[in-house]
Every structure is written in structure tokens, then in C-alpha cells.
Design a protein around this nucleic acid. Sequence first.
DNA 1: CCGGGAAACGTGCATATACACGCTTCGTGA
DNA 2: TCACGAAGCGTGTATATGCACGTTTCCCGG
Lengths: 143, 143
Amino acid sequence: MADSPESAPPEPCTCSALRRATRAVTTVYDAALRPVGLRVTQFAILRLLERLGPTPVTRLAAEAALERTTMGRNLEPLERRGLVRIAAGQADARERVAVLTEAGRDAVATAMPYWRDAQTRINARVEPGSVAALAQALTSAAS
Amino acid sequence: MADSPESAPPEPCTCSALRRATRAVTTVYDAALRPVGLRVTQFAILRLLERLGPTPVTRLAAEAALERTTMGRNLEPLERRGLVRIAAGQADARERVAVLTEAGRDAVATAMPYWRDAQTRINARVEPGSVAALAQALTSAAS
DNA sequence: CCGGGAAACGTGCATATACACGCTTCGTGA
DNA sequence: TCACGAAGCGTGTATATGCACGTTTCCCGG
């Protein structure tokens, strides 16, 4: 008898809300990048590689806060398309070093304006800083 | 000669930051729900079904802001485990109505405290309202 | 120099997500 | 009533994500 059948709405799940927002945003970016044939995930990896230079998979994953095996898998379509090359480690034979190819560099350059477009549109809807803060506060939440 | 080689860091991608945060948060929730054998995605669907009652797939997808076929696919593991039952539409033979079973209702009840734990921990790191606002502002961003 | 723990990876498996197509069923206007 | 556009779905295909396990290679202490 505490509350009537249809009293208060259930507390929304923070995670689900976040996932929902991410889906929507991802759709916008993916649609924008469509003409280039890249997804935002792939674009991000290429940009990361451009910034870091040749990088072993494990470190690349750490930089992106991605599970190691996920990064490995995400590199596959990029390698198939010749945007990334995977080389064996020089000093360490265990390492597999991801290298941005010329085609990959070109792809980033070509995609940039399309990304910019989506970025501008989304940033108009939210404080870019708030998302950054959110990511900052949550990225290492796996306590 | 505008800027030196390693001058300003590139503007961070809002989408990638958001995806990153979502991955981290999802990991926390999934880990918390692990003992129950549910993922946060599945938990969310079950809760949604509990709130809406028997609902056709398309409407369920709309409620969750999920792609229709994605919702259909996401229901499969739940149906296999007997937490959800898919019935043919009564009035409309085209419809496939998702129904929460008793086992499904029990699963939600069992999972609740585990979810609560993750929810509390995450909400301690961010303003729950800010995420809600973010979701609100972005969910229908596919202009 | 060698034996064993640790580091860097790959694979198998299961989900999550979305787009492009194609099929079936509904409802409605002519 | 009947052809036809629309609504509700499923399937095929491709990526994204992460966990559990197993393998190879390093490196270091004895």
C-alpha cells in the first residue's frame, strides 16, 4: 500500500541512457563519413595512428581505452582496405606493429571535412567540454 | 611555417569520447550484473518490457531508440533463455509481440540489487542529471 | 645457461548494432 | 472487391566489443 500501481516512473539507468546517446551520435558521424566509406570508429583509429606513428596493438588499445583483442579485430578491415599495415615487431618478435599507410593518411585527409561537419553539428547540441569531462570522469571507472 | 610539427593536439572527437565513456560504464554494469548472467543491455530490455507490458518489436525498438532489427536480434538470447516469449500478434498477424515471462520477471528482481550497485557507483562519478540531459539532447540528433 | 613467470598476441564464442533487401499482411481508394 | 502503397518483420552481411583460453617470445634470477 505504499504507492499506487502507476506512481513514480522507475529510475532511469545511467548506462542505458549513455548507450542511447552514443548510438544516436554514432549514427550521425557514421552517416557523415559514409561518402568516404569509413565509420567513426575506423576514422578514430586512423587518426590515432597518425598521431602516434607505428604502434604495437596493445599500446594502441591502451591509448584508445579499448580491449586489446577488440583493437586487433578493429584493425582487420582497415588492413584489408590497405589503410593500415601490420608489421612484425623489430626488437620484439611478439609485437605486431600497426602502421598507417599512405592510403590511410589520404583517407584521413579526405574524411576530415566530413568528420568536421558531424562534429560541428553535434557540438552545437551539447557542451563539448561536458562530454570531455564525462569521458574523463568515466574512462577509468572500472575500479 | 604556421605551427611547429608537434604544436597543438588535434581536436578530440566528441563521438569517440562518448563511445569511450560508454564502453567504460558498460563494463562496470556488465561486471556488476555478471552473477545474474545478464548484460546491462538485456537488463534494460527486460525492465522496459516490465514497464510496457506485451509490446510489438517495432514499438519496443522505438521506445529504446534502437534500430528495429537490432531489437529483434537482442531479443533472441532472452527468448532462448526463456526470459521473454515472442507471440504472434492477435489483431495484426504481422506483429510479433514480446512478452516478459515469469522467469523474466524474476530475473529482473534478482538483478535489481546488482544493477543498483553499479548505478550508485557510476552516479557517484557523474551528475546523473547531466547524463540524462545529454541523452535528451542527443537521442534525437539524427536531424 | 636454463627454467619459469610475464608480456604480447590470436582464436573461439556470444552479443550489440545497423543497413540493404525482400516477404507478408493491412488497410484503403477506386 | 481488388490492386497497391504502407507497415511490421526477418535475413544477410559487416563491424564493434569483450571474455576465456591457449601460444609464442622475453627476460630474469639462480
